[in-house]
């Protein structure tokens, strides 16, 4: 805390009317899983693309008793994650943590934590482009009609084109999903490895897109199915290595270039998961 004390701001930065507006949008989004609810985003003290949508959704959800975790590509210690965590420390005064199991609200960019989520947790995604049909159909009027009428053939045309061109569905992240058998939605650009975790999740999942002014959501235990073909089924995949720090074969890995000679290593993208495992191994060994 520095001179610009949190006392000068309303709790969690946004005024109460704005938070009410956001909460209405969130409740509506939860009532209609996968449906994109428009909201009126506010200017936030950070640029678009840095998670303004996620930050506003988090601000609307936070209560003083919450314990906040923020990750960027799975890591708690990257610039984006650190900035957002500090922001809420300062304007909401909430406790923070890097431990998945201790957090009540987790704001994330591009990953779902490896540690299974629980019923009393809220996962808030930062979403750049919430409209899965956007790259196929540029007109917003038309995509809204397509959602309303469940005209999703085009989504499979995209997957068809992938297979025709690359022999397989080349999409590695932002793999489109069907929420509760009704709305096709983008899971924000998480790797397809994380897609199965979207389904039947005990936690609330909220998706905020600040620039695009849309919120969509998955209430707990929603059925989420990744779109695919019978003869080219969806497969969650990851680099075929074990983490070089904790040795996990199950977690999603980042490829880290270590020198200019082509040296590289694979490590868990989820830093909390990795360090928890390494610590357990060390204390087990001791």
């Amino acid at each position: 805390m520095n001179v610009a004390s949190a006392d000068n701001y309303n709790f969690a930065y946004l005024d109460e009317q704005t938070k009410r507006m956001l909460r209405r949008a969130i409740l509506k989004a939860l009532a209609v899983p996968g449906y994109q609810v428009p909201f009126a985003p506010r200017e936030m003290p950070m640029p678009y693309g840095w998670g303004t949508g996620g930050v506003q959704v988090s601000a609307a959800c936070l209560v003083p008793e919450d314990r906040l975790k923020v990750i960027d590509q799975g890591a708690d210690d990257t610039t984006n994650a650190v900035s957002i965590r500090k922001f809420f420390q300062r304007v909401a005064g909430v406790a923070t943590t890097e431990t998945t199991t201790e957090a009540t609200v987790i704001q994330t960019r591009h990953r779902i934590p490896e540690t299974p989520l629980k019923e009393d947790q809220i996962l808030v995604y930062q979403v750049p482009i919430p409209e899965p049909l956007r790259f196929l159909e540029p007109r917003e009027t038309e995509t809204r009609r397509m959602h309303a009428l469940e005209e999703y053939g085009l989504m499979h045309v995209k997957l068809y084109e992938d297979i025709a061109r690359h022999g397989e569905i080349a999409t590695a992240y932002a793999w489109p999903v069907m929420a509760e058998g009704r709305y096709v939605m983008t899971p924000s650009p998480i790797p397809k490895f994380d897609n199965p975790k979207l389904s039947d999740c005990p936690a609330i999942q909220l998706f905020g897109a600040g620039r695009e002014a849309r919120i969509h959501a998955l209430p707990p235990w929603t059925k989420v199915v990744s779109l695919d073909f019978e003869d080219h089924p969806f497969q969650a995949s990851k680099a075929d290595h074990a983490c070089e720090i904790c040795g996990s074969c199950e977690s999603y890995l980042d490829e880290v270039i270590t020198d200019d000679q082509g040296g590289r290593m694979f490590v868990c993208s989820d830093t909390d998961f990795c360090s928890t495992r390494s610590n357990a191994q060390q204390s087990g060994a001791a």
């Binding site: 005209e151 999703y152 053939g153 085009l154 499979h156 045309v157 068809y160 084109e161 297979i163 025709a164 061109r165 695919d228 073909f229 019978e230 003869d231 080219h232």
Partner: peptide
């Protein structure tokens, strides 16, 4: 036509729109 999509994708679109989900058969 959808000019940015292959001939096969263009023909397959209506099939996929009515629920065809087998790539081999669509092709």
């Amino acid at each position: 036509l959808r000019m940015g999509i292959s001939a096969g994708g263009n023909i397959g679109e209506r099939l996929m729109a009515v629920g065809a989900r087998n790539y081999g058969q669509i092709r």
